[in-house]
């Protein structure tokens, strides 16, 4: 009698156990549902642009004037690409040097300060970065380089370079740290200096992680919206210099989305820009998986 009660109780526990397992799987699958929904909804809305605008006109023309039916997004696409590359060019070397410093050179006490400092870099809101860019950097560029406004690629890239620092630092530092100590000691024992060991042994061994950090930084830079919008100048023209006001995909979406009727060709073309951003960032995930896969292979 007693044992049958126990068995019933036990079965209940097992059922509960199974039930919780399904719940966990369901939560995990919800992530897949969400990302699929994002691709489908943004994609559907964006692709409707092509009922009125030809792909060539959207991707290859630089003239953006929705009131006249011109939907050339080339200047925004180029703006995003330029700003991203320039930001990585400015930010990656400093971030990488910081990562090496943190992992190999800094005294433990300083390292204990730098780790929360990197978290703080992430935590500062992008509007605050944009505000600093707008109130300090843009006037500085205007005076220093003697240009009209100071808005443009350089201002945006410089702010982005700071914003991507934490991504590069934390992921590169992890990669540098996970290089086996034996490799490092072997190099030092052969008489190499610390710098020779860093450049000849540690950095090559940590390369997949470093590349991952740079690609993730690019993903962050290309998707950053508010800070860029505040310093880029928001003018739909292809940038021919670092100081010419221009626009990016993200900044153009933020500036215009509020004024466009949902479902119009104008509105849809902004969703198409979002789709381009989405596909760019998904492509970067694929690249990262390739890079990381090479390490294990």
């Amino acid at each position: 009698m007693a044992s049958s009660v126990n068995i019933g109780e036990h079965n209940l526990k097992l059922a509960y156990d199974r039930y919780m397992r399904y719940l966990f799987i369901a939560s995990a699958l919800l992530l897949t549902v969400i990302i699929a929904a994002i691709i489908i909804f943004v994609g559907q809305q964006g692709l409707m642009t092509f009922t009125e605008v030809s792909p060539a006109d959207f991707f290859l023309a630089g003239k953006w004037d929705p009131t006249e039916g011109k939907y050339g997004a080339l200047s925004f696409i180029l703006g995003s690409v330029y700003v991203t590359l320039l930001a990585v060019l400015l930010g990656a070397p400093l971030g990488l040097a910081g990562a090496v410093f943190m992992a190999k050179i800094a005294p433990p006490r300083l390292r204990d300060i730098m780790r929360p400092a990197t978290d703080l870099y992430v935590a500062i809101p992008s509007v605050v970065y944009g505000f600093i860019g707008l109130t300090i950097l843009v006037p500085y560029i205007r005076v220093q380089f003697g240009v009209n406004t100071g808005f443009g690629l350089l201002a945006a890239a410089a702010i982005l370079a700071v914003m991507i620092l934490p991504t590069i630092i934390s992921i590169s530092e992890d990669a540098i740290r996970s290089v086996p100590r034996a490799l490092e000691e072997g190099s030092l024992a052969l008489g190499a200096t610390r710098w020779q060991t860093i450049t000849g042994v540690i950095l090559p061994a940590a390369l997949p992680g470093i590349l991952t950090s740079v690609i993730l930084a690019m993903a962050r830079a290309v998707g950053e919206t508010m800070a860029v919008q505040m310093v880029i100048g928001n003018t739909p023209q292809i940038a021919r210099s670092l100081f010419m006001p221009t626009s990016t995909l993200t900044s153009e979406i933020v500036v215009e989305m509020g004024n466009t009727p949902f479902g119009s060709a104008w509105g849809n073309s902004l969703f198409l820009m979002a789709l381009v951003l989405l596909l760019l960032s998904l492509a970067m995930i694929v690249v990262i998986r390739r890079v990381a896969g090479e390490r294990t292979a």
Partner: peptide
């Protein structure tokens, strides 16, 4: 299944926030 879930998590983490915003706009607004 695990692969798909991991890929979804990584992808969702890199979706630019403005794209998430527009997605939310389509759904909720």
């Amino acid at each position: 299944l695990t692969d798909i879930i991991r890929l979804s998590t990584e992808s969702l983490a890199t979706v630019p926030s403005i794209v998430l915003g527009l997605f939310g706009m389509i759904i909720f607004v």
